[in-house]
Design a protein around this nucleic acid. Structure first.
Length: 993
RNA sequence: GGGCCCAUAGCUUAGGUUGGCUGGAGCACCCGGCUGAUAACCGGGAGGUCGUCGGUUCAAAUCCGACUGGGCCCA
């Protein structure tokens, strides 16, 4: 029930949303409300959720706020519905390059060798310490935006139990032959000296300039004839020393273009026009690709040396005639296609690069040069040997390391793979069961990606990560360890306690081969950190080693992250749940688009247009920031600025705080309250309750299908109706001197709607909702059990569409009649005699009965409202009436001018208004009695005299006598002129008796 | 080069699945009102070729196709 009347400046008005947030946060902190409520009722049915673990050694940005808002909204809603949240644990992704790079930067380390010199143990210790470096900032951001998670017991991917669960998962995959070693071309970062996975590469494509060179390779001819050359195009000259083959396409047409000194240059006829625009194609000798199959050529460099089958023309369908020359340079060490063709042709590999992609001594001219640095030297060699035909540059997109920004190379490496390609169909069918937002991702981007899923390159040649638990002995036996207990057994004794399952401690163990007893060595890799995070739904509970709420048959109900996670977390979770549990990982998945600045540009630190989330949240309040995201289509890229946030906050949240302030100023005195409000009888009360019920229903449906946008919109519309129609029309009802039944009904209805709105609002704007709820409570902010977040979600009541429709129509007529009034040119204060509405007897608005009539009459300020049947023939001459046809078929007529009597009434009202304003401007309070003297010219003087008692009553004076015009000249006499009337007044504060 | 998405007033958005009244609203703008919610409230006005072109149809913002611009993903 309404609390005590707020002290000056204490009410919700005048307080910004940011201040509301601070006050509410204090309350939550004081009673530790988040900690008490975050898990939901322990007996409730489970709602399965997992926080996607962010890397906490990097600062959060504004994009993280939106995903967190989308997560929090649904979790809050489920709690209000009585669900237990499984799990509300915060989580941190602790492993991997991001952490290692921070430590490298700190010590100026630039290579793996330097890490080894520094000491792997020390290095990893620092990684552990640095992994959660800015976790406190993440927590503060979550607090400021009202994202409730259990931060006191977060899961961390570097914790021993977590790692043990990950090992269990790896062992399961290994047992299904889905974890295998292979030698494949992978994207490789020369600086980090490790392979990356395709989803990591996807993060780092960038526009760059590379050489674009065409060279000629002379065909070895069996018979004498013109010298013929294959033209070959490449953007990676550094791979040319590794060239072992040239590929052509069997059915493609090639032509021989005359070159210098009687030579002939061979290339695809489609390319000839690009290379030799002046050549007459019709005159040229033609070949098919298959005619050239098996022909030998002279390689661009001799370093790789001879070997069977090398330096031949081979056929392959992957050759694309639209690009290059139709002859493709094949270096099996440096490209997935190259590798495939090389293996098919049995030519082996030739990789002259070391781990840092620096040329070794096998190629003396570029020994010691990085692969990129070798390009110009190699080109110069080709030029002097005459092999270089065209040398230009090309702008194109090329992959860079997502963490250190080094250009990547594709190279063939030993690596461990998850054989996702073997169960891609199962991935697709599991994905079919997921409700995606936006829906098109399911069959579109994500579905496509799954259908052609490549094997997942899992191993990393790095230090700080979950060690790959696979050991081999000299006898070639292999074991994948799936638990610490098994590890202890193979080691022949207990593990050191406490056991830290990272590289140093794990590699210090001496394992014996269970088959031959020989010593075993671990495969020296860590695993992709995305595997760690993909395991979060079960590893956070140390499944299967401890019993917890995780159930292998139960998918998560809901996850939400940024769109980029389709290739990241959403993908790896699905891979693991499919392979381990043969089911989808989650039932519903919501993604959000990128956050742009107000110009629509990407935010970046270097451009200086990035919004710092903490300061924005502090300045605007968490709710305004959250609302700014609900208000737009968050599945698409969205613009965000301080201005958009401010506006979003004002629109709904500011309005409802205003309504609250009004309510508090006009609440029933404590003595007049009753326990059980009576059922609403007044039209306005019944209407706003119907609106409320419809909104409960709509918000419930919206949140059930994870549609934050529609839910927020529904609340926004209710708040607008509450403020601009219900409250505006109800104000006089709340101003009565004594507490009438109607005043009671209005106050109770308003309070009830505010209460319900607070609960509806709670998932979206947790601070504002709490503030409303508290201020409707006896002793606000003093009872820790009275949080709105412990409330029960309202039950949707049966809808009353008839009522809503009727009021909608009535409001349309009100607007129409106001427009007529404007055309008549008579101010609202001057009553007009008659409004005629000609409409069907069963028009919805008429169903509102006499109360509806009264509403219409009062809004338009007419003395009489007259209904007419559609066929009525009454004449309303233009001279006296304005008219307006309505789209619903109704016709409205309004009198053009007041009667003299009504005009005088208008004058009195106008005078009263001016006198009230004057009172206020003199600094008098609403309750200060005054001494009033009036002067007026006729006919106003006469009208005022007739209303003298009423004037006295409204202005808190004795009934004034109205003196004849003119008023004496004096400084303290105020004068007005309006509608041809003249008025003057002297107002003084009456001395207290 | 391939795939997916987006496009409604200056800005944010409703409507599009199921084609049908004059395409709704908020902010900002202009005019006016109210003045016991006041950095609030109410009315009116101006502002839209619903990205462009074409098709289907009696009828297209809505369905289909192409194009333009923007975004994302892949190669």
């Amino acid at each position: 029930m309404g609390g005590p009347v707020p002290e000056e400046g204490e009410g919700a008005t005048g307080r910004s949303l940011a201040e509301v947030a601070v006050r509410v946060q204090e309350y939550w902190d004081r009673f530790q409300i988040p900690a008490r409520l975050v898990h939901g009722p322990p007996e409730g049915p489970p709602f399965r959720f997992t926080e996607g673990p962010p890397t906490a050694n990097g600062n959060p940005h504004i994009g993280h706020v939106i995903s967190r808002a989308l997560k929090d909204t649904i979790v809050r809603y489920r709690r209000l519905r009585g669900d237990r949240i499984v799990s509300a644990m915060a989580g941190w992704d602790c492993h991997g390059l991001p952490v290692e790079l921070e430590i490298e930067k700190k010590h100026g380390i630039r290579s793996k060798r330097q890490i080894e010199e520094y000491g792997v143990a020390r290095f990893c210790d620092e990684c552990r310490a640095g992994a959660l470096e800015v976790a406190a900032i993440w927590e503060e951001m979550s607090r400021r935006m009202g994202y409730w998670l259990d931060y006191s017991h977060p899961y961390k991917t570097m914790d021993a139990p977590y790692i043990e669960s990950v090992w269990w998962a790896l062992r399961e995959l290994y047992g299904q032959h889905l974890l295998e070693k292979g030698h494949y071309c992978l994207p490789y970062c020369p600086r980090c000296e490790t392979a990356l996975s395709s989803h990591e590469v996807a993060q780092g494509y960038r526009e760059t300039t590379d050489p674009s060179v065409t060279l000629r390779l002379r065909l070895r001819e069996d018979v004498a004839g013109p010298r013929r050359y294959l033209l070959v195009w490449t953007t990676t000259p550094w791979t040319l020393p590794s060239n072992l083959l040239v590929a052509a396409r069997a059915d493609l047409e090639y032509v021989g273009v005359p070159g210098p000194e009687g030579a002939e240059y061979l290339l695809a006829s489609a390319a000839a026009a690009r290379y030799f625009p002046e050549a007459d194609l019709a005159q040229l000798r033609r070949y098919r690709g298959r005619d050239l199959e098996g022909r030998f050529y002279e390689p661009p460099f001799e370093f790789a040396g001879p070997a069977p089958h090398r330096y031949r023309v081979v056929l392959d369908d992957s050759v694309d005639p639209r690009e290059g020359t139709g002859f493709v340079h094949i270096a099996p060490s440096f490209g997935p296609e190259d590798q495939r063709i090389g293996e098919r042709e049995g030519v082996g590999f030739y990789d002259p690069l070391d781990g840092r992609a620096v040329f070794t001594d096998v190629i003396p001219p570029v020994a010691g040069k990085g692969f990129k640095a070798a390009d110009p030297i190699l080109l110069e060699l080709l030029r002097s040997s005459g092999a270089l035909v065209v040398s230009t540059t090309l702008r194109h997109t090329y992959p860079f390391c997502w963490r250190c920004d080094t250009p990547l190379v594709y190279r063939a490496l030993d690596s461990w793979f998850v054989r996702t390609s073997r169960f891609s169909q199962e991935l697709v069918s599991n994905n079919d069961q997921v409700a995606w937002t936006p829906a098109h991702l399911k069959a579109g981007r994500f579905g496509n990606f799954l259908g052609e899923a490549k094997d997942w390159a899992l191993s990393r040649s790095r230090y700080w990560g979950t060690p790959l638990p696979i050991w081999r002995c000299v006898g070639g036996h292999e074991v994948c360890v799936g638990s610490f207990e098994e590890l202890a057994r193979l080691q022949g004794g207990p593990l050191p306690a406490p056991f830290d399952p990272h590289r140093v401690a794990v590699d210090a163990l001496l394992l014996r081969c269970p088959e031959c007893g020989g010593p075993m060595r671990r495969e020296p890799y860590t695993i992709d950190g995305w595997f760690d995070s993909g395991a979060a739904p079960f590893a956070q509970y140390h499944y299967p080693f401890e019993s917890g709420p995780f159930r292998k048959e139960a998918a998560l109900d809901y996850v939400a992250e940024g769109l980029d996670q389709t290739r990241g977390w959403f993908y790896t979770m699905l891979v693991l749940s499919t392979a381990l549990f043969r089911r989808p990982a989650y039932k519903a998945c919501v993604t959000n688009g990128l956050v742009l600045d107000d110009q629509g540009r990407k935010m970046s630190k270097s451009k200086g247009n990035a919004i710092e989330p903490l300061s924005l949240l502090a300045k605007m309040g968490g709710d305004a920031v959250r609302w700014a995201f609900y208000a737009v289509d968050y599945t698409e890229p969205m613009r965000v600025s301080e201005a958009t946030v401010r506006l979003a906050g004002q629109r709904s949240l500011g309005t409802i705080l205003n309504v609250l302030a009004f309510y508090r100023g006009n609440a029933l005195p404590a003595a007049a309250r009753r326990r059980e409000p009576a059922p609403a009888t007044a039209l306005l009360d019944r209407w706003i309750l119907a609106r409320q019920d419809a909104t409960v229903e709509r918000v419930t449906r919206a949140l059930d299908r994870y549609d934050h946008h529609d839910g927020a919109l529904a609340i926004q519309e209710l708040v607008a109706d509450l403020s601009t129609w219900y409250l505006r029309r109800s104000r006089p009802r709340l101003w009565t001197e004594e507490v009438t039944e109607d005043r009671r009904a209005a106050a109770e209805t308003l309070e009830g709607v505010l209460r319900t709105t607070a609960v509806l609002l709670a998932p979206f704007a947790p601070f504002t909702a709490e503030a409303i709820h508290q201020e409707l409570t006896e002793g606000p902010y003093t009872d820790g059990s009275a949080s709105v977040h412990a409330a029960r979600w309202p039950k949707p009541a049966p809808p009353d569409p008839g009522m809503l429709r009727s009021m909608e129509d009535l409001r349309r007529w009100v607007e129409a009649a106001r427009e007529l009034r404007q055309r008549a040119g008579v101010k609202a204060r001057f009553p007009l005699p008659t409004l005629v509405v000609r409409c069907a007897a069963d028009a919805p608005a008429r169903a509102l009965g006499p109360e509806g009539d009264e509403l219409l009459r009062d809004e338009i300020n007419v003395r009489e409202l007259r209904w007419e049947a559609p066929g009525a023939t009454t004449e309303y001459p233009e001279a006296d009436w304005v008219r307006r046809p309505e789209p619903d078929g109704a016709m409205l007529f309004l009198s053009r001018s007041p009667t003299p009597e009504l005009f005088r009434e208008g004058l009195v009202r106008e005078s009263l208004r001016r006198l009230q304003t004057a009172r206020k401007e003199l600094g008098l309070r609403y309750s200060d009695p005054i001494v009033l003297e009036l002067w007026a010219a006729e006919p106003l003087a006469d009208a005022l005299r007739a209303e003298s008692p009423r004037i006295g009553r409204e202005l808190l004076s004795e009934p004034p006598s109205v003196m004849a015009w003119p008023a004496p000249a004096a400084d303290d006499i105020l004068r007005w002129e309006f509608e041809g009337a003249r008025l003057a007044a002297r107002i003084r504060k009456r001395a207290p008796v």
